[in-house]
Design a protein around this nucleic acid. Structure first.
Lengths: 204, 204
DNA sequence: CCGGGTTTTGTCAAAGATGACATAACCCGG
DNA sequence: CCGGGTTATGTCATCTTTGACAAAACCCGG
């Protein structure tokens, strides 16, 4: 009845697929690479490819997901009783952005992916972020069950502030990390003031 | 150089496809109906089907899109100078919810669609909503270009409040429209108070 | 080392979705 | 009513995804 050993073998083929994909993507481009080629390079069947990745394009978003894990961890590490906006701010600012910036998949995304695919995924990430915040608040608050609405709306507003800021920053000509940090800081401060005064969301 | 006459013919096949699809969906279920069957019933090729609908499942979300159009119109009809939250509240509360509730596609969605598909689409709708609010604010405000960040974050928070409320409401056992209205009203009021005091978003 | 239960892959078949190019249907001024 | 430009479809070929079921690889107690 052994559960979820995630037998090394699986992780190996997974990695093989990743490597094969990146190699092909770099050599001939994403769209010009077929899922079958990737599978063959990795020495497995096409069907196995789809067992490891829901779609060919998902190979280009794995880093977002790991970033999300990171965020959850950073949030959980914040001291109890800290205002939620402050926790989020701290978690976000400690994030190792450089990793993302240097990521090879990032360039593939920007270069070839249909923009719609990217924004769709961004929306999913944003949803995951506010889900993480919701979980965090539910874990921290005593009366969480009776304040579900407050919690959900607050979490969504936090994510809205972060991703809205990012959206605006992305549309700029010049995009420096320090600018993004500054904008985020300002937006979060405004949000904090708003939450304090809204009545509904006080006392976090 | 006639542009986009949307020649009646196109609208006819589109309608034929819609009818054929609904008929099949009702008779044998959504997943058990192939795109080819729909196309044949409508007397067109499979390829033509995909020219009218990006995917088979998109047939089940057309009503959301029309609701969005309605929202845009309702927003645009609000008097100039009205605070944004008030405009949104009025637009939302004037919405003819019954139409949606009685929609045939709504039952198909609930009955057969993979939940993930639904939430993904919900996210898109939410994004469209705050895009609508952004456009509205940009049209109404004099200094819109210099306040892009305020506008985007505000719009996202508005959408966050509405959809967050809906999320919580959906998870309830008993779901009455009057409850939803009451919750939405309360949430929007809190948001309004928050926006007023946030400093960044004052004076809308 | 064996045998059974679990996990991972392979096989087969079919549906979903798209790009490229050819045709047919339509629309309009002349 | 004609001819050319535009729009909507049809054809063909290929790729992407997924369900169902079989075979192989692995893991563990005995």
């Amino acid at each position: 009845m052994a559960r979820n050993p995630q037998t090394v073998r699986s992780e190996r083929t997974r990695e093989a697929l990743r490597r094969a994909a990146m190699s092909r993507f770099g050599a001939q481009g994403v769209e010009a690479t077929s899922a079958e080629q990737i599978a063959e390079d990795a020495g497995v069947t096409l069907r196995t490819f789809y067992r490891h990745f829901p779609s060919k394009h998902d190979l280009l978003f794995a880093d977002y997901d790991s970033g999300l894990q990171w965020f959850r961890g950073a949030l959980a590490a914040r001291p109890p009783g800290e205002p939620i906006v402050e926790s989020v701010r701290a978690a976000i600012f400690a994030f190792p952005y450089d990793v993302e910036a240097l990521s090879q998949v990032a360039s593939f995304r920007a270069a070839e992916l249909d923009p719609e695919r990217i924004v769709t995924h961004m929306r999913r990430v944003e949803a995951d972020v506010f889900d993480a915040v919701v979980e965090h608040l539910e874990r921290r608050l005593e009366d969480a069950s009776t304040r579900r609405l407050d919690i959900v709306v607050t979490a969504r507003c936090v994510a809205a502030a972060l991703f809205g800021t990012m959206e605006v920053w992305m549309q700029r000509e010049e995009r420096s990390m320090s600018d993004l940090a500054e904008l985020s800081h300002a937006t979060l401060s405004s949000l904090e003031a708003g939450l304090d005064e809204s009545g509904m969301f006080r006392h976090y």
